Amino acid sequence: MIIKINGKYYKIKKIEKNPNGKYTITTENGKKYEFKNVKIFSEEELK
């Protein structure tokens, strides 16, 4: 799965839903981001 952050695309390693309704997304390079609204892309959609 792929996520778009600030115009760049990252591969997703893990998605966790937090009790506060936000999502914590861990990218393949180990960085964590927290979002309220998340749009996930499949690799097929990006081709």
Score class of each variant (00 low, 15 high):
40 I>L: 11
15 I>W: 05
21 G>L: 02
8 K>R: 12
27 T>D: 06
15 I>V: 10
22 K>E: 11
16 E>A: 05
16 E>I: 08
2 I>V: 13
40 I>W: 15
28 E>D: 08
27 T>A: 08
11 K>Y: 08
12 I>H: 00
36 K>N: 13
1 M>D: 04
2 I>H: 12
33 Y>E: 01
37 N>D: 14
10 Y>W: 07
43 E>D: 10
43 E>G: 03
1 M>P: 05
17 K>W: 09
28 E>S: 12
1 M>L: 15
9 Y>F: 12
1 M>G: 08
24 T>H: 04
40 I>H: 06
13 K>T: 14
16 E>G: 03
21 G>E: 02
16 E>K: 05
15 I>E: 00
44 E>I: 08
36 K>C: 15
31 K>V: 09
26 T>Y: 13
34 E>W: 07
47 K>G: 13
21 G>W: 01
40 I>N: 05
30 G>P: 00
14 K>V: 10
11 K>W: 07
10 Y>I: 12
44 E>G: 11
4 K>R: 12
47 K>C: 15
7 G>P: 00
47 K>P: 10
34 E>Y: 13
27 T>G: 04
41 F>H: 08
41 F>G: 05
38 V>L: 13
6 N>T: 03
2 I>L: 15
32 K>I: 14
42 S>Q: 11
35 F>V: 15
5 I>Y: 04
30 G>V: 00
32 K>N: 05
3 I>C: 08
43 E>Y: 04
8 K>S: 07
31 K>S: 10
40 I>Y: 07
4 K>T: 06
29 N>V: 03
15 I>M: 06
47 K>Y: 03
8 K>M: 11
37 N>I: 10
20 N>L: 04
28 E>C: 15
21 G>V: 00
29 N>D: 15
40 I>D: 06
31 K>A: 11
8 K>L: 09
1 M>F: 13
10 Y>H: 11
5 I>D: 01
4 K>M: 14
4 K>V: 14
31 K>F: 10
41 F>D: 04
2 I>W: 15
19 P>F: 06
38 V>K: 04
35 F>K: 04
38 V>I: 13
46 L>V: 11
39 K>T: 14
39 K>R: 13
41 F>R: 06
38 V>H: 05
21 G>N: 04
44 E>L: 09
42 S>F: 15
41 F>M: 10
4 K>N: 10
8 K>C: 15
8 K>E: 09
35 F>I: 15
31 K>G: 10
18 N>F: 07
11 K>M: 06
14 K>D: 08
9 Y>E: 05
45 E>H: 10
15 I>G: 00
39 K>E: 15
31 K>C: 15
7 G>A: 03
10 Y>E: 09
36 K>A: 15
43 E>Q: 04
10 Y>S: 03
26 T>Q: 03
46 L>T: 08
8 K>V: 11
40 I>E: 05
2 I>Y: 15
42 S>R: 09
2 I>Q: 06
36 K>P: 11
16 E>Y: 05
35 F>S: 06
37 N>Q: 11
29 N>K: 06
4 K>A: 10
1 M>N: 06
33 Y>A: 02
23 Y>R: 01
19 P>K: 12
15 I>R: 00
13 K>F: 09
7 G>T: 03
2 I>G: 03
42 S>C: 15
44 E>F: 02
4 K>F: 13
47 K>E: 13
7 G>L: 02
13 K>R: 10
10 Y>D: 02
13 K>P: 02
47 K>A: 13
10 Y>A: 04
21 G>S: 02
46 L>K: 08
43 E>C: 15
34 E>N: 06
16 E>V: 12
31 K>W: 10
43 E>M: 02
3 I>T: 03
41 F>V: 13
26 T>K: 01
4 K>H: 08
30 G>H: 02
27 T>R: 01
36 K>R: 10
22 K>T: 15
10 Y>Q: 09
29 N>T: 10
26 T>R: 00
19 P>L: 09
4 K>W: 13
33 Y>W: 09
38 V>W: 03
46 L>F: 08
35 F>W: 04
